[in-house]
Every structure is written in C-alpha cells, then in structure tokens.
Computed example of a mutant assay.
Amino acid sequence: MNILVIGCDQVGASLVRDLERIGHDISIIEKDSEQLKRLDAFDDYTFSGNALVGDPTDPDVLRQGGIENCDAVAAVSEDDSLNLMAAQIAKSLFQREKVICRVSDPHLQVLYHKAYELDTICPTVLTEQAVFRSLAK
C-alpha cells in the first residue's frame, strides 16, 4: 500500500519505520526539517521513501508528497489543527477514502469523527484506557 504520513515527530517516525518494515511504500510531509532527523535515530533502519519539507495543508505540497497516488493518509503530527486541516483536504479535495487523523483532545476526537467523517485516533483516550485496564485487574 502507498501511504502518506503527515508529521514526523516520535509517533510519525515510528509509524513510518513500522509500515515500511511490513512492505508499505511511504511518503512523509513534515513542516520542520529537524523532525525528519528522527528517521535516522533508529539503529537498524534506513528510510527509503520520499520525505518532503513543507506545509501539509497546502494542496501543492500534498501533490508533491504524492497524495494523488496514495491509498491512505495518516495525519499524525502533534498539532491537532494541522492534522484536521490536512485530513480534510485529503478527504474532500483529493477524495482519499482512508484518512486517519491523530487528535489529542478527546472532545475534538468526537467532533472530528462526526462532523468531518474522519477516522480518528486519540492518544489521550488510548492512554487512559490502558491505565484503567492495568489498574482494574
């Protein structure tokens, strides 16, 4: 599968590595060139995809990043607003069906899912659920 990842912070870099290891073709768009250095931090991994520095809410940058040929988009930066905007553009302007949006605020997760019909992942909710399960044993 050809996947466009938006954001290369700790989550994005790990996601890219894991997806490439199982055979997916990955492109990354990151606003901050310094963040792309995270891809070099893994001892046993070398990124082989396309990395682009630019604004992932700019349709031209998304085109340069390969959005028109991707099967899925994962907007996983640390910035909820950036993720929402990039995910909305991917879904509405570029008609990508599989778009996943990372959202830190649980209340926004519900809104993004219902109002914008985006698949959302909320690290805050996932962490709370994991801690709850561990304490409830």
Rank of each mutant, 00 (worst) to 15 (best):
G54R: 05
G54H: 08
G54A: 05
G54M: 05
G54S: 06
D55G: 13
D58G: 05
P59Q: 06
P59I: 10
D60M: 14
L62D: 00
L62V: 01
R63W: 03
G65I: 01
G65V: 03
I67V: 06
I67T: 00
I67P: 00
E68I: 02
E68A: 01
N69P: 00
C70T: 10
D71S: 08
D71C: 02
A72I: 02
V73P: 00
A74D: 05
A75T: 07
A75S: 12
V76N: 06
S77T: 15
D79L: 13
D79Y: 09
D80P: 09
D80T: 13
S81P: 09
S81N: 15
L82Q: 14
N83H: 12
L84W: 08
M85I: 15
M85S: 08
A86R: 04
A87V: 08
A87K: 02
A87I: 04
I89V: 11
I89E: 03
I89Y: 04
I89P: 00
K91G: 06
K91R: 15
K91T: 04
K91F: 05
K91W: 04
S92H: 10
S92D: 05
S92G: 02
L93Y: 08
L93S: 06
L93F: 03
F94G: 02
F94C: 04
Q95D: 08
Q95T: 07
Q95L: 11
I100Y: 10
I100C: 10
R102L: 11
V103R: 01
D105W: 02
H107L: 13
H107T: 14
H107S: 09
L108C: 06
V110G: 01
V110W: 04
V110D: 10
L111N: 08
Y112S: 07
Y112Q: 08
Y112D: 01
H113S: 15
H113C: 12
K114S: 12
A115N: 14
A115W: 09
A115V: 14
E117K: 15
D119W: 14
I121K: 11
I121L: 15
I121S: 12
C122G: 07
P123D: 10
P123H: 11
P123I: 07
